[in-house]
């Protein structure tokens, strides 16, 4: 069963359409973190890689305001503000996250467009 071609599903190339189309199981198999937020910033997608990095089960995160309860360090002009300012967004940036309170360098990719959710991809 190959609903979506697995090619192009790497961190830098996966598209907004692909993220919206693939199953939860396939999202869980991706080697990078995927967080999908609704327009109210409530978490709707939280894949296994991200869950393992942050040390939080998906059930504890889904439905929460991402920028308030999980990632206050992204609630700034580099991430949260960009989602607000740019309706079409596909940007990669180096960043520092606090997985389990350890300062950790990571790359982020921010994606927003016609799809119902906006996505933050996290590569350690």
């Amino acid at each position: 069963m190959t609903a979506v071609n697995s090619e192009g599903l790497d961190f830098s190339h996966i598209s907004l359409d692909q993220l919206s189309a693939i199953s939860a199981l396939e999202l869980d198999r991706l080697p990078f973190g995927v967080v999908g937020l609704g327009c109210d910033n409530l978490v709707q997608v939280y894949n296994r890689t991200e869950s393992q990095l942050a040390g939080l089960p998906a059930g504890a995160v889904i439905g929460n305001d991402f920028f308030i309860s999980i990632a206050q360090c992204m609630n700034n002009f580099m991430v949260a503000q960009r989602f607000q300012d740019e309706a079409e967004l596909d940007a990669e940036l180096p960043y520092v996250l606090t997985f389990r309170m350890r300062p950790t360098r990571a790359r982020l990719r921010l994606l927003q467009g016609a799809a119902p959710l906006k996505y933050i991809l996290i590569q350690r």
């Binding site: 999980i70 990632a71 206050q72 360090c73 992204m74 609630n75 700034n76 180096p94 960043y95 520092v96 996250l97 606090t98 309170m101 350890r102 300062p103 360098r105």
Partner: peptide, 17 residues
């Protein structure tokens, strides 16, 4: 370091880290 401390300190670092 927790996320809020990171949010406060990150802008003070020229390299953002």
């Amino acid at each position: 370091i927790n996320p809020l401390a990171m949010q406060l300190l990150m802008p003070l670092s020229p390299e953002g880290f």
